[in-house]
């Protein structure tokens, strides 16, 4: 059977796993977003703590994903929860780092002008600093999302949900008739999910960034 007829025959299962994969990624990125923004907000006046936390979350990123997924088994068992947790851990760093980079990248003269005209700290944050840092912050979310889409495949090794299941099922039937088709459908579907999310981020970026920033 060729790949395309395989996909059309198993379309229902592939699309179901794809939706699962998407949900998994969105939940993890959302959690990571809350954690990252919380960390950045909490360390507004503690630059040393902030630097230490950033380097810690950066180091977490070097941990091989299979080890992190597996390590959560003794604590949370197999399945959805350890998968989401591990993906959240990975997604924190890109978001937190880009939020910090974005906020620190705001032109100091603009902040000075804002202070000089009597804007309060809150007003400066919401009217000036966040809108100006937004493209960089959004890009952090984008990097985290694309990374998590690929990493989530390994979740299937600990019985997690998502498209990784197709890859591991293909592997377990190695030598069988549809092993390659099954694994390939998983890999391609993951790439498609990543591409679609990437396009969505480009669209969000276009819609939510002030025209004044890209003229």
């Amino acid at each position: 059977m060729d790949f395309f007829s395989y996909v059309s025959q198993h379309w229902e299962r592939i699309s179901f796993l794809g939706m699962q994969h998407l949900q998994l990624v969105l939940i993890a990125v959302l959690c990571a977003g809350v954690v990252s923004l919380g960390l950045v907000a909490a360390t507004e006046r503690l630059p040393r703590v902030r630097a230490a936390l950033l380097s810690f979350t950066g180091t977490l990123l070097t941990i091989p994903s299979f080890a992190l997924f597996a390590l959560l088994i003794p604590v949370f068992g197999l399945g959805v929860l350890p998968t989401i947790l591990a993906l959240t851990v990975y997604a924190v760093f890109p978001i937190a780092r880009n939020t910090v980079t974005g906020l620190e990248g705001v032109d100091p003269s603009v902040i000075d002008a804002a202070r000089g005209m009597g804007m309060s700290a809150t007003r400066r944050l919401f009217l000036v600093r966040l809108p100006l840092a937004w493209p960089v912050i959004l890009n952090g979310f984008r990097v985290a999302t694309i990374m998590v889409v690929a990493t989530a495949a390994i979740g299937a090794a600990v019985n997690g949900p998502g498209l990784g299941e197709l890859i591991f099922r293909g592997l377990s039937r190695i030598g069988g008739a549809n092993a390659l088709n099954e694994a390939l459908s998983g890999v391609v579907a993951i790439a498609v999910v990543a591409a679609v999310l990437d396009l969505i981020f480009v669209a969000i970026g276009k819609l939510t960034t002030s025209k004044g920033l890209h003229v």
């Binding site: 694309i146 990493t151 890859i167 890999v187 993951i190 990543a194």
Partner: peptide, 12 residues
């Protein structure tokens, strides 16, 4: 290629 999972390449 970065969007392709590493385990996918290995398995394929």
């Amino acid at each position: 290629g970065q969007a392709v999972p590493s385990v996918g390449i290995l398995v394929l």
